[in-house]
Design a protein around this nucleic acid. Structure first.
Lengths: 193, 193
DNA sequence: ATATTTGTGGAACAAAAGTTCCGTTATCAT
DNA sequence: ATGATAACGGAACTTTTGTTCCACAAATAT
């Protein structure tokens, strides 16, 4: 009965996510998003609520897409050590091919906001737990299949892996070169046997 | 010949650092600093320049104090494995005793700004390199003293250690509990032999 | 004591940020 | 076609941000 939206709701949300991902919450103004995406102010506020609501929606989108993909990879992988290795390679490559030095949106957001926004804190906490569980279960499967030694406790190893993946996202903003990444990845993977 | 400042220049700089550390660059307004520190607007601008200059000064102060202390510890430590272990314990404790969940000011700043401010990028890069060198030299000494095995290349081990320390600063914003920290630290230290 | 110099308090301001509101426009069910 | 509904464009507004400016105050060298 009413006019249809002139923009794609998911596409705008995705682009807004890229803004917040790249420049942070406090570093991004509604105006910038409007200028770039070309939709009208009223449409933005009508559809997504205020700036903070929009931000929360983009963070949830990240959880459902990027984090979701990692979890699904871990759930379906046949070769667990290879799957873990490929996550590290992916992290490394994203820092040196193209413009993808944005790091991880979850990491960026928790560093900027977790101390000051309870809802953000809850999302990143849940995100961490979901990832930890996915890694833990994958490691258990790997151990049962004989792909990984049973010397390490699955959950402890999962936490250790995540710590190094997050460390790499910090390294991506630190001006470190490829050799730094290679050293870290080699040392981390040496533990995963 | 002229009037003396009514405030302590170093003390105000230190307090401004705490603000930026806690709330980030874009999350902190000059007004907040003025309200809290009680000096006048003109004094602030006269002494430290604009907001960005003030921020850069606080970042350099952090480098000279906090990072400097770590480097000096590594340079003077007799027992290298113990020194490294104590850095991890320090990181762990600061997340659970008192209000120190601010993480590392360098890490926070590079995540927020390194992509958008060349001077910040240069400072955090230099900071990373100085720390890496300090760890590397300490590890070499530890190996020469027979405190550490020579299986690992000193620089690679240094990078790996830093990656895990930075990972912990991210974990401090992720709602992780003590057990998570303990697992990560135990696994990391198991590599340092 | 005075001149010189620098610090201080606070008014003032331009620009940006974040949001609301409303008249107009497009869509579609009837 | 028409009317109900929702989207759009953009004016407008309130705060906040970041900064400058200037009259006045205090310290000190002479």
């Amino acid at each position: 009965m009413a006019r249809t939206k002139r923009f794609d709701e998911e596409e705008v949300l995705n682009n807004a996510m890229l803004f917040f991902w790249h420049k942070g919450y406090n570093g991004t103004s509604p105006q910038e998003i409007l200028d770039e995406l070309g939709l009208s102010r009223s449409s933005l506020y009508d559809t997504y609520g205020d700036k903070r609501s929009l931000f929360i929606s983009t963070l949830k989108r990240y959880r459902d897409t990027v984090t979701g993909d990692v979890i699904r990879l871990l759930e379906t992988a046949d070769n667990i050590p290879e799957a873990i290795k490929s996550l590290f390679q992916q992290s490394r490559n994203s820092c040196f091919s193209g413009e993808e030095k944005n790091g991880c949106f979850m990491v960026n957001s928790k560093v900027e906001l977790a101390l000051h926004d309870e809802e953000v804190a809850a999302i990143v906490k849940e995100n961490r737990e979901a990832l930890e569980n996915a890694f833990t279960n994958a490691i258990k499967r790997g151990q049962e299949k004989g792909q990984l030694s049973k010397d390490n406790q699955p959950r402890a190893l999962a936490r250790f892996i995540m710590n190094n993946l997050w460390g790499l996202t910090v390294h991506s903003k630190s001006g470190a070169d490829k050799k730094v990444f290679d050293d870290i990845i080699r040392m981390t993977l040496s533990v995963i046997k």
